[in-house]
Nucleic acid binder design. Structure first.
Lengths: 255, 255
DNA sequence: CCATCTTTGTGCACGCGTTCACAAAGACAT
DNA sequence: ATGTCTTTGTGAACGCGTGCACAAAGATGG
């Protein structure tokens, strides 16, 4: 789970709950698959199963958009695809810039899921002169000096940050100053942005750590009565080499 | 926000709320940074600012772990690092396999954040014979025929899926059958797994779609209210090709 | 030893999100 | 038309997460 945004007090934008908005893309994907198979209508039960959610939740979600279903029949697939696309703003073209063309940035540039959903990679930007001019996914990498001009010329309002954490905040500020108002941040850093700018964070290592927590719990349940008390006061803080191993040294893309 | 797991009725594992678990890695990162700077103690206020959360929330989160603070002083950085690491299960070594060595899989293999936090890439697996034997991030890619053996030999319990969506479910089933009980899924597919298996999903295009929703909303508000507050280029992003329903033709990597 | 000051830990209230369960709405057959 | 059957849309209850606000705990200084 890429973790959520920054501030914004859980405002429900235009009456549509944030939780619902987060699920709309899921429904859209399931509906698109049905559409490809030329399925004309679908019930909330079927669609919910395909999207992996509860059918009541799905119906309530759709009810925020309007009454698009027909009782006794279900939902018209094509119509719903259109309505959700429109609601999400996918009927228009969103130029996007990716800043930081390392492994991850390149992977994103190559990611087919962007182009297919109203998003267009308008430019790839990197601070390394070595990268400048190279083609990644058929798109030339431009130097970060050009950042402001690129944003402005292309009317970019969405930026993706895949830089090392050390420069993420700085890049963020330049993006915002240049007119970007939505940021998808892959750098393991807390970005601070002015009001009105949305930030969503995707953090790979956090996801793994959450899995590890549950994994440990599972293992612990089996070995039930093992580690009993708290980590003895005596051996508190065992890891003496603490300072050193902080080998958490941000290599390529620390997290 | 990479969206969450599959089922599990929001069970709070061992009394620690899921929402808290999701924030622990965040605190850990901030604490690690403090530790590197040899800061001995930190107050909830300072740490909360560094992690980008509310201080009351942070204190409540920590209270689930135990009373590790000292009133009037704050929290001992090293001690807290240890406690959170232990709670998350990061004091042990977690071998991980990555299945599907495309752009994204390669990016993850190169991702420094894994090795630094108790995770070890035990193997890279791909179905393409062309890939077999190649080195990615210094690790040889093995053929998917070996999947079961690799999982078993290395005692892998966490798998990362970065395959095309079409084969994700199948890969998932093989992983689970071989003993994997936690999966991090990057493929835009709803995975169904038996009880006891955790799935977390990271979906790049969903994140962008959520941003697009808010972006559209912002644009709509400006247009409607005609607020001169935000310097919004008048006719940015026109795209009149907003044709009727159906225009949304899914392409290569439906997401 | 007492007073003061800082900061934790938490009781409490509030709001969002989820789920149940059912009435209303429409399709379809007779 | 009328009855039956299916499925939507939603009222209501509940539980989780969040944030306020404060009392308790401990440090610090005189």
């Amino acid at each position: 789970m890429a973790t959520g945004r920054t501030h914004r007090p859980a405002t429900r934008s235009r009456g549509i709950p944030e939780a619902t908005v987060a699920r709309l893309p899921l429904y859209l994907r399931a509906l698109t698959a049905l559409s490809e198979r030329s399925v004309p209508t679908v019930s909330s039960e079927e669609l919910a199963a395909a999207a992996g959610v509860n059918s009541a939740k799905l119906r309530k979600d759709f009810s925020y958009l309007g009454s698009y279903g027909t009782r006794g029949v279900g939902y018209d697939v094509e119509y719903l695809v259109y309505q959700i696309s429109r609601e999400l703003g996918l009927t228009q073209d969103w130029p996007v810039v990716i800043v930081g063309i390392g492994n991850l940035g390149a992977a994103l540039a190559n990611y087919g899921g962007f182009a297919s959903r109203g998003f267009r990679v308008a430019a790839l930007i990197d601070a390394d002169p070595e990268m400048t001019g190279r083609q990644v996914a058929g798109i030339p990498v431009q130097h970060s000096d050009e950042l402001e001009k690129i944003i402005s010329d292309n009317g970019v309002s969405i930026g993706v940050i895949t830089t090392p954490p050390g420069v993420a905040q700085q890049v963020c500020e330049r993006l915002v100053a240049a007119g970007v108002t939505s940021i998808l941040n892959f750098a393991p850093t807390v970005l601070s942005v002015p009001d009105g700018v949305d930030v969503r964070k995707v953090d790979l290592s956090i996801e793994l750590q959450i899995l590890a927590f549950h994994e440990q719990r599972k293992a612990g349940e089996e070995a039930a009565a093992q580690e009993s008390a708290v980590p003895a006061p005596a051996a508190r803080r065992v890891n003496t080499t603490d300072q050193g191993p902080d080998g958490d040294v941000p290599a390529v893309m620390p997290a």
